[in-house]
Amino acid sequence: MEFLQPSTWTEALQMKSAHPEAMPIAGGTDVMVEINLDRHRPASILDLTRVTELNQWGADGEFLRIGAGVTYTRIIGELGDRLPGLAMASRTVGSPQIRNRGTVGGNLGSASPAGDAHPPLLATDAVVELASVGGTRRLPVREFFTGPKRNAMKQDELIAAFLVSPAKGPQQFSKVGTRNAMVIAVCSFALTLDPVRKHIGTGIGSAAPTPVIADEAERFLEGVLDEGGLWEKPASVDASALARFGELVAAAAKPIDDVRGTAAYRRHALAVMARRSFGWAWDEYRTKASE
């Protein structure tokens, strides 16, 4: 096995171009499990932890641009106020040891349907920045996941960063699992309320071959809020509308039966999480509006 350790971003891209087969490693919380258990033995490995550019975040126009190597612990501590949904999801990842090493770039790289960063990134219309020696391209995260553990990254590309708007309104994330920590989601749901664009964003995890959005549910709820003039005068939302929202979220999933849960359970849980998440987010919006 060859060990490559670039110290700059340019060097990392050059090495990836010269060794397209090289397996990148960031926090190692997915890669090392594969190597330790001998599930996969890459011919060469590209350590990205020395590349300072990947560990930085900052403003990029109206977006926040967050380096692929920023850990969950730092997202919680440094960005929790601006990205509350992603921070809530980050708090549910593994244990302190895992959050101290694991990165959103690694979550995107693994592209597991159960990756906890994915639903909040979908719900906030995040953009993934991919780079190679040939140049940089930005891809909506909605187009990034191409199949179970598959993504749109080309062989000579690396994930540089993701871009996301700071929250304009309440955000929520919920996850079902057998324990309060150290669990892969049975299913998960993220919700974003954007009062500026009058937009509802959703993201569903662990209930389809890839993380997905609930497009129809978003449009339905936007319609309910618009019709009632509720963004301007936030009254309570009709229970039947909430039930319909839950149904549409469940319908957007394509779950399977597996060791963690049945398809029917996942659909049921998604409808419940969707209703509750909206309830919590809407309460927060109404409280802020009445202040």
Binding site: V33, S95, Q97, N100, R101
Partner: peptide
């Protein structure tokens, strides 16, 4: 990374040594 019995500090940060290359 499941059991934590390999926990060490690396540059002052708590990590599982089994997951550090």
């Amino acid at each position: 990374g499941e059991c934590g019995s390999c926990s060490v500090y690396m540059d002052g940060v708590l990590v599982c040594a089994c997951l550090v290359l």
